[in-house]
Design a protein around this nucleic acid. Structure first.
Lengths: 201, 201
DNA sequence: TACCGTTGCCAACAAGCGTTGACCAACAAC
DNA sequence: GTTGTTGGTCAACGCTTGTTGGCAACGGTA
């Protein structure tokens, strides 16, 4: 196997520029969403010409795809005590969101761009789905439980990092984890609640 | 007091047109977000000329402000049995979201437009805040509890109506209520969880 | 009838967008 | 030293956007 073909692509002289473009793109997508994050603005941030973005990433959609290769980096929940998976997951998502701009960028674009929506769906289906299936009582319920987990995680991210509701944005990390942990725990391992359609309370 | 000055503004011949513009604007904002919902497209939907939109609403921001005067129409939770406020609120938000396009439009724009973000903050602070304060144990905790409720409600709306995660979008109404009810109940009336910063589980 | 505010359409503007292709400078290979 | 490849700049294109001003028809009022 030749060195240039393997997992390690040949290093190029332009790697620094490519990285600068991706960093600027993530910041802009995270801050402005898809439409307002213009290629010209991204290029200005990266101190290069807009045409370079086209050369290296084809078009704007290609740039977005490259900039938001989001990996949730989920831990193996099977190795965590069963009654702590909720807290553990809450903590992990908070970490992941504050780690870099990729998650915020993906969320923001997911709301305005159809390619972004598809990407968001894929991330949670392919990455969160299996992890949930490994800890929940009935694997058939995994997609629904994963969707519930996603709803609470994304909702907090929305309130805290995008909409910046003051009480949510200012809440200490540990308090957020303490509140969300039990919620996620119930979504993951709790009994499926009774939900007869005749219930009109 | 003259009739024309009072709460009932003089009916105009153009009221039908104004209403058509607002309806079309809500649909477009809800479906496409702020930037992609162009004034030309809205005017086309309403079967009028783009310049009419400018005449009646000043500019695009004015149109958005008029189209998303969002009222959560929250019920008086004081009249609901204390242990059912969670379910009741979950049901109400689901109803409210499926009632018309205003909530989806406001959410979508809130994510991409700074005026929309401000509007979203105002809605939940001024409308949800007082209702939460009326049912939660310590009024000082109301903003934080309201933010938690908002995070779960908005997160489910995001997953179900905007990102359209298949398991969330396809979940029966009553099942969503059964899952979210206890979560909201705990956020509203549950004990403030222990959250010492030394906790590293 | 003549008048005037309202309603509506049309054509155009300046600005900004994504995108393209020509062109130059630096480097590597032979 | 010549040649081909790569990294980068510049100016322009076609298009869409929000926005504007002029102008024709309508509808009450005097």
């Amino acid at each position: 196997m030749h060195r240039d073909q393997a997992a390690d692509p040949a290093p190029r002289r332009s790697d620094a520029t490519r990285a600068a473009i991706l960093t600027a793109a993530r910041e802009r997508f995270a801050a402005d969403g898809y439409d307002r994050a213009t290629i010209r603005a991204i290029a200005r941030d990266a101190d290069i010409d807009p045409s370079m973005v086209m050369r290296y990433y084809g078009n704007k959609e290609g740039l977005f795809a490259a900039a938001t290769e989001a990996d949730l980096r989920l831990p193996d929940l099977a190795a965590v005590p069963r009654d702590e998976v909720g807290r553990r997951l809450a903590r992990h998502f908070l970490d992941r969101w504050e780690q870099d701009d990729v998650m915020t960028a993906t969320l923001r674009v997911g709301v305005t761009n159809s390619a972004g929506t598809a990407r968001m769906q894929g991330i949670f289906r392919d990455q969160l789905g299996p992890v949930v299936a490994a800890v929940c009582p009935d694997p058939a319920e995994a997609p629904a439980r994963a969707a519930l987990v996603a709803s609470q995680v994304l909702g907090m991210a929305l309130a805290r990092y995008v909409l910046r509701f003051p009480p949510a944005a200012g809440m200490p990390r540990e308090e957020v984890i303490a509140w969300l942990g039990p919620t996620l725990q119930r979504y993951l391992t709790g009994d499926r609640p009774y939900s007869a359609s005749s219930d009109t309370s």
